[in-house]
């Protein structure tokens, strides 16, 4: 890091002048050390940047830490005020309760399935659509692009009810098709964002590559599959991951469309378990207190797959925005 080096050399000049007993020069050096040539490269500025980052980072991670530590607490730990952060014993009981109650392995598989298949359909369709918008000119293209972006702003509450009727009429309620069909037609959750990601990604690929393939006799579909898709693998991963996470976490529409069926997303299943469990015990009873920890354990189990996924693929998540071309290339 350049900044750190500069600070080090400045510190060395202070020492040098101190040894030479040149106190006047030393005073300037010290001032320069703390305030820098233009404040932003001085020590004070640097320290405050890190202090702010660390405190904001703490605020961001606080709920996570709270969840993790409290989920391990026993009943006595929760009631005991002296136990704030570190549980007295590592208590896996809470996890065991939830694990068994919701039949975690099965619920987990179902959640992956419920999020994965719509996400996959959304990725395929938005890839095709984004490519069409990025590479071809056709009448009304501008208008269609605007309409596509508009679909992001219209809240699902507006379209929810007619869609619900439609699904009810065609018997799609309580089945995964209620999510797959919109996804495959480019209208899944936040579909507009995914189309935009592909749109800007395909626009960045030099057109000459595709033109040379065309000269060699490849049709449009072949060009798409053999040239564009292999080049767009980062975009494909980004879109799939985001789509997966959003489908996994979605509870409003899935709560509506999957009502009364056995299928449920993991967050909904944990919520249902909690509601059932709480209604068994009266307010203020010890079992209710224990519940607090069990609920948090349930939440940890819900987000654990996502955390693991995020841990391995964070690069794609945090670089995603650069790829949307929002900043205007």
């Amino acid at each position: 890091m350049m900044g750190q080096q500069k600070l080090r050399t400045r510190f060395k000049t202070i020492l040098k002048h101190y040894r030479a007993k040149d106190y006047h020069a030393m005073k300037t050096d010290i001032r320069r050390f703390f305030f820098g040539m233009r404040f932003t490269d001085g020590l004070i500025f640097k320290t405050s940047i890190y202090a702010l980052l660390i405190s904001l980072g703490y605020i961001y991670l606080y709920p996570m830490l709270y969840m993790i530590t409290n989920s391990f607490m026993t009943m006595s730990d929760i009631i005991d005020v002296s136990v704030r952060w570190i549980p007295s014993t590592l208590n896996w009981e809470n996890y065991r309760i939830v694990w068994q109650a919701i039949d975690y392995p099965r619920a987990f598989r179902e959640a992956i399935y419920l999020a994965g298949i719509p996400a996959l359909s959304a990725t395929v369709s938005s890839g095709l659509i984004g490519y069409g918008f990025a590479r071809y000119n056709f009448p009304l293209k501008k208008l269609l692009l605007v309409l596509m972006i508009m679909t992001f702003i219209v809240p699902p509450q507006i379209t929810m009810m007619p869609t619900f009727r439609m699904y009810a009429n065609y018997g799609l309620l309580g089945s995964m098709r209620a999510f797959v069909y919109p996804a495959i037609l480019g209208q899944g959750f936040n579909g507009a964002i995914f189309i935009l990601i592909f749109y800007s990604f395909f626009r960045m690929i030099p057109k000459s590559l595709e033109e040379s393939a065309q000269l060699d006799g490849a049709g449009p579909l072949k060009v798409f599959l053999k040239i564009a898709v292999p080049l767009a693998i980062p975009a494909i991963i980004i879109v799939f991951l985001f789509s997966f996470v959003w489908y996994y976490n979605e509870t409003y529409l899935s709560g509506l469309f999957l009502r009364g069926s056995n299928m449920m997303t993991l967050p909904l299943r944990v919520e249902q378990f909690i509601n059932n469990y709480t209604s068994l015990y009266p307010e203020g009873s010890p079992a209710r207190e224990l519940m607090q920890a069990a609920k948090l354990a349930g939440n940890i189990l819900t987000i654990l797959p996502l955390l693991i996924l995020y841990f391995f693929t964070q690069r794609y998540f945090v670089e995603s925005i650069d790829r949307t071309g929002i900043t205007g290339e």
Binding site: S125, L128, I129, F133, F138, T159, P162, I184, L185
Partner: peptide, 26 residues
């Protein structure tokens, strides 16, 4: 234009079914 519209055909159908129709119907 025909090829381009072919690529976004999925979206047009989806837009009519899952966006335009529900918005006006509601």
């Amino acid at each position: 234009s025909v090829i381009g519209l072919g690529f976004i055909l999925l979206w047009i159908v989806g837009y009519l079914i899952f966006a335009l129709y529900p918005v006006f119907y509601s």
